[in-house]
Write a protein that binds this DNA or RNA. Structure first.
Lengths: 341, 341
DNA sequence: GTGAAAGCGCTAACAT
DNA sequence: ATGTTAGCGCTTTCAC
């Protein structure tokens, strides 16, 4: 016996109320009729015994644990911790508990989590992890475990996807950079196996294709991280010292660009404008503050959480793609001239 | 039946191996003897059926779920997401799953989590939440739920606490500021109901008490957040325009100080040196980069997680206070002169 | 409207 | 060394 004090069971309640266990259960779950008087006596008994249903037993009997899981690359990543916050907020509202797992974008870790979660009768899973693939989707479908994903392609089926308008966002970024007077804009793009990396690059190319100043060497790949953004910036500025605008595929790389430019003695905002993408909290604390195309991170987390729960409870009409609007947040890093935004 | 495909049970394994359920269970838990041949046939059966024990059933029978919970103020807070990462890493290593909950430092939310966790037979809880108090400790003890805490006073009993050397860190901060030539140092202190806020203030006062330039008006309270740090800085600089060093009680407030000084046109590092406390990732991306007294955040998370698991498994010798070393990370924000560090 | 009883999948005596 | 059996606490037919 691990527990210190004895905990009341449904049987205790039934006994005290002078009725059977099944009636108490019916009352608890609001399934089937219960007489008004009986109900009152049950309530009294519950109160007196300080009774609360054992969720584990419920889980065994009903295969429902009121627990969902959130698999993400890394909870300490600024974007994902914001997302996690939203997911948990909504889950708590609906009476769900949330488990999280860091996949580090390693397929094996992710699969290990899935295995564990299956054995724990987790009700559903949110994948914000990049390694999630078709086979995983198939397996989960076969197991009958509901799931939803973040940032997948629009071609997915059998499951819902939440992401934001990456392509449009990239177009907005370029437009903004041009509005503040940039005439030679480079793009540091993220990993191409990620929708976010790919779509933002497409949006960029689409926006700059027509200009005579544009050349593919204004593109530089990086890894969505600060250090990568720094290196990419160095390479870009070396190739084209006259670059006056940089659109980074995400905020972390934009922060890297800020740092690199700073080290080169280039004044961000005045000489070179920098625009990021994501809208993580950190963009507010850089100097200069970072202009960014903000995703509604909290809303995305809240939506995906709500979708999963609806799906679990059988209230989701259909699986589909939800593309949320992004928003330009113009700050100091793109304040090129007085007549700029 | 929610699950799509049928999942093998221990009974299936027993049947296929031609033995009884209890033998399989014994094998699974390595409790009691099992014949070599029998063992082999069990292994075969398990493999063939792709069997994995149902953790919920195990939980019901054994009151052990291999799940721990992490209650923190806010997962989207930079410090706590780093901590959460460490906690989960270690937990996963030991075969534990982790649930997290955001308390927002509201006692009611925290109590609600405790209630839920109890009903789910969670094995133990890590409290990084500030609202955790004596009554909670008592309740958990009575319930027999193991727990450990972050950043509590040294006077706690019945449970282990992990924190870092806050007072020493504050002394180090002042020493460093003096080393780089500061002659009038202010302190933005955090909430005094938190050990971190209190201890750092004590360390500061202890360090500056002897100096003739010191006066209590060099102290300014704030809330451990960026905006609070900004306001405090403004007030301080107004009162004492000749302040040349600021020690903020945590990094977020230090970031606020950076921003405020920047707005006032004061060059951080040269005119006024700023030192934070915590060592969150963000300190690397401010401009200038922020000098800070770094707590070993990952280590703290790893340690507290390990402690809890040991306690759960009955391997923790005694409950005690673990005070980890902090480390000065000198960066641009305190680079006052060439002969500075 | 209410109760009896089987069963969820596993563990842990206890017996052999 | 292995099998039998009684729970763990709840849900859910199926009778009454």
């Amino acid at each position: 016996m691990r527990r210190g004090i004895a905990i009341a069971t449904i049987r205790d309640v039934a006994k005290l109320a002078g009725i059977s266990v099944s009636t108490v259960s019916r009352f608890l779950n609001k399934s089937g009729y219960v007489n008004a008087e009986t109900e009152q006596s049950i309530k009294n008994a519950i109160e007196k015994l300080n009774y609360a249903p054992n969720q584990v037993a419920r889980g065994l009997a009903g295969k429902k644990t009121n627990t969902i899981a959130l698999i993400l690359p890394d909870i300490s990543n600024l974007f994902f911790s914001d997302l996690a916050r939203a997911v948990e907020d909504v889950a708590a509202t609906y009476g769900y508990t949330v488990i999280f797992g860091n996949s580090d974008d390693q397929g094996t870790k992710e699969k290990r989590y899935i295995e564990t979660l299956k054995q724990k009768y987790i009700d559903g899973i949110i994948f914000a992890s990049n390694t999630f693939g078709h086979e995983d989707a198939e397996m989960l479908t076969k197991l009958g475990i509901p799931f939803v994903c973040l940032d997948r392609g629009p071609d997915e089926q059998n499951f819902s996807v939440v992401r934001s308008k990456n392509r449009e966002g990239a177009v907005m970024a370029v437009q903004h950079l041009r509005d503040v007077g940039c005439r030679k804009i480079a793009h540091i793009y993220g990993p191409q196996h990620l929708v976010t990396g790919k779509e933002r690059l497409i949006g960029f190319e689409q926006s700059v294709q027509g200009f005579d100043w544009y050349t593919p060497t204004l593109l530089e790949p990086a890894d969505f991280r600060i250090a990568g953004g720094m290196k990419a910036t160095e390479r870009l500025m070396e190739r084209h010292p006259d670059i006056d605008g940089i659109f980074a595929g995400n905020d972390l790389m934009a922060v890297g660009a800020l740092k690199a430019l700073h080290r080169m003695g280039i004044r961000v905002g005045e000489q070179v404008a920098v625009c990021g993408f994501d809208g993580i909290q950190t963009t507010e604390i850089t100097a200069p503050e970072l202009t960014t195309i903000a995703q509604p991170i909290y809303d995305m987390g809240a939506l995906i959480s709500r979708l999963l729960i609806k799906k679990i409870e059988g209230n989701l009409e259909e699986d589909r793609l939800y593309e949320l609007d992004v928003k330009l947040i113009a700050r100091e890093s793109t304040l090129r001239r007085k007549n700029g935004i």
